[in-house]
Amino acid sequence: MARYTGPKTKIARKFGEPIFGDDKSFEKKNYPPGQHGNNRRRGKKSEYAIQLMEKQKAKYTYGILEKQFRNLFEKANRSKGVTGEVLLQLCESRLDNVVYRMGVSPSRRGARQLVSHRHITVNGEIVNIPSYTLKPGDVVGVREKSKSLEVIENSLANSSSVYEWITWNSEKKEGSFVAVPERIQIPENIKEQLIVELYSK
């Protein structure tokens, strides 16, 4: 299964924000990576470079590779809504992202692993496809045999995030994907319009 497995802090430093979650190494070196990272006299970025950077940031944030991301954009482009907003909504509706948002895993990468290792159910059926798109009303839960897993217990104990479009029942270890989130409800710092401009060239 293709996904980015390289150094996370280096990528976070490139974008200047901890896109993979809390990162002690990033806090120590929150300047760009490389030999001249601390020397801020870098040339002005072109419009294309800024758009490309935003696209890369979105891809790394959600753990999606180029081909999948491009397909999501095509799908968003064909829909009736605002393309950039729909693109982010499609990313947010992915099963691995919702598992992460529910607090079952502390990171999207961990959530992806839980899904592919068959620990997660959708409407009572095991689904092991991280990119599975959830529909409003779908119930996402932890498989009965996996409820006592230490990684899941620890993550839920440390999770304090609450999102309006998701409900969570800690006793049953399951929650509902109530609705597709509005752009204003998505906390990610992504300028989706730049991605649309890049792909529309």
Rank of each mutant, 00 (worst) to 15 (best):
F73M: 10
N169G: 05
L65K: 08
G81Y: 01
R13T: 06
V142L: 07
K10L: 15
I19D: 00
S116K: 11
R40Q: 14
V86P: 02
P106S: 11
S200M: 14
P7Y: 13
I186V: 12
E188V: 12
P106W: 11
R108T: 02
C91Q: 09
Q193A: 03
P33S: 08
D138R: 04
Q113G: 02
Y48T: 02
K59I: 04
E144V: 12
L134T: 08
E182F: 13
A12C: 14
E66N: 14
Y48S: 02
V104L: 10
L72C: 00
F69D: 03
V180P: 06
S176K: 15
N154G: 03
G63A: 07
K55S: 07
L90V: 03
S93N: 03
R40N: 13
P187K: 09
I50K: 14
K28W: 04
R40W: 10
Q113A: 09
K67Q: 15
V180E: 06
S25C: 00
F15T: 01
V115F: 10
T5L: 10
S93T: 07
K191H: 13
A49M: 05
E54W: 07
G34F: 09
N169P: 03
K55G: 07
S170R: 14
I129S: 02
D23K: 01
Y100P: 00
I166F: 10
K80T: 11
Q35N: 08
G37P: 04
Y31H: 15
E150G: 08
G84V: 00
Y4M: 12
E92Q: 08
G103P: 05
I64G: 06
L95P: 03
L149M: 15
R40S: 14
S160E: 14
E150S: 12
N30T: 02
E27W: 03
F20S: 01
